[in-house]
């Protein structure tokens, strides 16, 4: 934390792409991943380019991940829950450009 006076909430465990990841209550999924050094939250459908947090406030939808089975969920707006399933589909459908 940036200031000793600030203590994040209780520890919870997320399952990210099948692997457990420790996070603290109150954190967003994006921040829980950032805290572990993970900046790439998804790859784009067409080009397969990496994307991460951009606006961090729910406007740009660039941080969308599949969270608890729901694709297109904003990692910057979703607070962590114990046992939450997060996946980052690296697979993408190469779209033929005519």
């Amino acid at each position: 934390m940036i200031d000793d006076a600030i203590q994040p909430g209780a520890e919870v465990t997320l399952i990210v792409d099948g692997e457990p990841l420790q996070a603290r209550r109150g954190q967003t999924v994006a921040v829980a991943l950032l805290a572990r050094g993970r900046r790439v939250l998804r790859h784009t459908r067409n080009g397969g380019h990496p994307r991460g947090l951009f606006c961090a406030m729910g406007v740009c939808f660039d941080c969308v991940m599949t969270i608890d089975g729901l694709q297109g969920t904003r990692a910057c707006m979703t607070r962590v829950e114990d046992g939450m399933q997060v996946s980052t589909p690296l697979r993408f459908e190469g779209r033929e450009q005519a």
Binding site: D3, Q27, V31, L53, C55, M57, D62
Partner: peptide, 23 residues
């Protein structure tokens, strides 16, 4: 501007003020 690590200034501020985290 689409590379991870590029953000809006407000996004960086949100991480600090809203999550106590540095970008």
């Amino acid at each position: 501007w689409d590379l991870p690590g590029v953000m809006t200034p407000g996004g960086a501020q949100t991480l600090v003020k809203g999550q106590g985290t540095l970008p």
